[in-house]
Simulated scan of single mutants.
Amino acid sequence: MPHSLNRRDNVSDSTTATSPEPDDIRAARMAAGLTQTEAGDVVHASLRTWQQWEAGDRKMHPGLFELFKLKTGQKRRKQATSDRKNQD
């Protein structure tokens, strides 16, 4: 039998990320101090797509949300805060 090309077959459910909630998307954009147009530009998405994500009309891929947070410095700040707490 040929090897499966579908990688999801090899991923357990416990490691599958879920799409962010619209409020989380909006909060991340606001924390970055960006307009919806600017936020979309960060991840190469249109204004309309970003609006749909924030309205809950369309799901944002979890990897894209993580990319947005990394590119806007939000992922590093959270990690740095966690690292400081572990040093105390």
Score class of each variant (00 low, 15 high):
Ala55Tyr: 04
His61Phe: 00
Arg84Val: 11
Gln51Ile: 01
Leu34Glu: 10
Arg58Pro: 04
Arg58Phe: 03
Glu38Asp: 13
Phe65Gly: 06
Met30Cys: 12
Thr49Phe: 05
Ala32Ser: 13
Val11Ala: 03
Ser46Arg: 03
Ser19Leu: 07
Lys78Asp: 15
Gly63Ala: 11
Glu21Arg: 11
Arg84Trp: 13
Arg84Gln: 13
Asp13Gly: 08
Lys59Met: 07
Lys75Arg: 15
Leu70Pro: 02
Arg7Met: 02
Ser19His: 07
Leu34His: 06
Thr49Val: 06
Gln36Trp: 01
Thr81Cys: 11
Met1Gly: 13
Arg48Cys: 00
Met30Ile: 14
Gln36Tyr: 04
Thr37Trp: 08
Arg58Ile: 03
Lys78Gln: 14
Lys85Cys: 11
Leu64Asp: 12
Gly40Pro: 00
Ala55Gln: 01
Thr37Ala: 13
Gly40Asp: 00
Trp53Thr: 01
Met60Ala: 07
Pro20Glu: 08
Asp13Ser: 09
Val43Leu: 07
Gln79Met: 15
His61Tyr: 03
Asp9Phe: 06
Asp41Ile: 02
Leu64His: 03
Arg8Ser: 06
Leu70Val: 13
Thr15Glu: 14
Ala39Ser: 02
Pro20Asn: 07
Thr16Ser: 13
Ala80Trp: 08
His44Ser: 10
Ala17Ile: 04
Thr72Lys: 02
Trp53Ile: 03
Gln79Tyr: 10
Thr49Met: 05
Arg7Gly: 01
Asp57Thr: 00
His44Gln: 11
Thr35Ser: 11
Met60Leu: 09
Val11Met: 10
Asp24Arg: 02
Gly63His: 06
Phe68Leu: 09
Arg26Phe: 11
Arg7Gln: 04
Ala32Ile: 07
Leu47Met: 04
Thr16Pro: 02
Asn6Met: 09
Arg48Gly: 01
Ala28Gln: 05
Ala45Tyr: 02
Arg48Ala: 06
His3Lys: 14
Lys59Val: 08
Ser4Leu: 05
Phe68Glu: 09
Glu38Tyr: 03
Gly73Phe: 06
Asp13Phe: 05
Asn86Leu: 14
Lys85Ile: 13
Thr37Ser: 10
Ala55Gly: 00
Leu5Ala: 12
Arg26Tyr: 12
Met30Val: 12
Arg76Ser: 13
Ser4Ile: 01
Asn10Cys: 09
Thr18Gly: 10
Gln36Lys: 09
Asn10Ala: 12
Asp88Gln: 15
Glu38Arg: 12
Lys75Pro: 02
Met60Glu: 08
Val11Ile: 11
Phe65Asp: 10
Ala31Thr: 04
Leu34Cys: 08
Val11Glu: 10
Arg8Ala: 04
Leu34Arg: 09
Gln87Asp: 15
Asp23Glu: 15
Thr49Ser: 00
Gly73Trp: 06
Phe68Asp: 11
Gln74His: 03
Met1Glu: 12
Gly73Asp: 09
Ala80Leu: 15
Pro20Gly: 10
Gln52Pro: 05
Leu34Ala: 03
Lys78Phe: 12
Asn10His: 05
Arg8Cys: 06
Phe65Met: 09
Lys71Ser: 11
Thr72Arg: 08
Gly40Val: 06
Ser46Met: 02
Pro2Glu: 09
His44Asn: 12
Val11Gly: 01
Gln74Pro: 07
Thr72Val: 04
Phe65His: 11
Phe65Ile: 10
Thr35Met: 03
Ala39Met: 08
Met30Tyr: 11
Ser4Met: 08
Gln79Glu: 14
Ser19Gln: 07
Val11Leu: 09
Leu5Asp: 13
Ala55Leu: 02
Val42Pro: 04
Phe68Gly: 05
Ile25Gly: 04
